[in-house]
Amino acid sequence: MEDISLHVLDIIQNSISAGASCVDIAIKEIPADHSLYVMISDNGTGMDSSEAERSLDPFYTTRTTRRVGLGLPLFKAQAEASGGSLEIDTEKGRGTTVMARFDTRSIDCLPLGRMEDTMATLILCHPDIEFRYTHSYYDKCFEFSTQDIKGKLGDLLISDLSVIGWIRKYISENIEKLYGGVASEVDSGT
């Protein structure tokens, strides 16, 4: 994967397969500590301790079509390659939280990438799941929740392409603002 946002998109496919109705995504950047935390938390079926352990094994998967599952093992390897770590907190029937720390000093630390594209893709493909996105940079914080947006939309579907386009720009501009950048009207392209 080229960046962290693609890993996030991939890891959340697990949440979706686990039947989650709510997924929380949190990015926490503390440049003074050279830390970037990624937390993905869902209310899906969860795993027992032996499943949780095996989920980090590339040759373990719950699907029946093939015998490999690379999502979590790849994400863990990337976090560790930077000198960070990955932990899974899960309980059968309660849900799963995946927490990764990246050390931003390392040359092997992946860039964060376009979180707005990951969020837009998730919301478009899974309009029935509630996604919450929290992004903090030092003490500044941006929060976004599909529940809030749906409340404003009434009969219009959140997966309507005009809404998805708006969400993508809205998130992108607010992340820019966290970094202190000036929001631009330039089309972000792909």
């Binding site: 994967m1 693609l6 991939d10 594209d117």
Partner: peptide, 18 residues
């Protein structure tokens, strides 16, 4: 959009369609 698709560039393709 499994791991293989995402790694190969499925997200920009999907967003290009959108």
């Amino acid at each position: 959009m499994a791991t293989c698709g995402i790694a190969a560039g499925a997200r920009p393709v999907l967003l290009a369609f959108v």
